[in-house]
Amino acid sequence: MVPVEYYVGLSAILFTIGTLGVLTRRNAIIIFMSIELMLNSANLLFVAFARTFEALSGQIFVFFVMTVAAAEVAVGLALIVAVFRTKDTINIDEVSSLRG
């Protein structure tokens, strides 16, 4: 079998790519997809460790993460649609009313 360290490394790479997506892209939907990628890399790690330690709970956690992600996507996309309605854009940099 492939050593678990390989999976950890792959997961780290995917996670970093996801982070870069969040930090460098301006399109809110792509930022959102990057977050999904990050969650996915964490899931991969869960499954790998579940296998390593033969603890099935890891897989259960993946299951829960997926449900939470589904809920998050539903609300998040709704938010994006709502933002698009009021601002007429989904460029995250134009939504900067947080500046005091």
Binding site: T19, V22, L23, R26, I31, I92, D93, S96, L98, G100
Partner: peptide, 14 residues
């Protein structure tokens, strides 16, 4: 640091 850009805040978190 308070730019109002969400991405900017995310950068500091990172």
């Amino acid at each position: 640091f308070q730019t109002g850009f969400v991405r900017n805040y995310a950068l500091w978190v990172f």
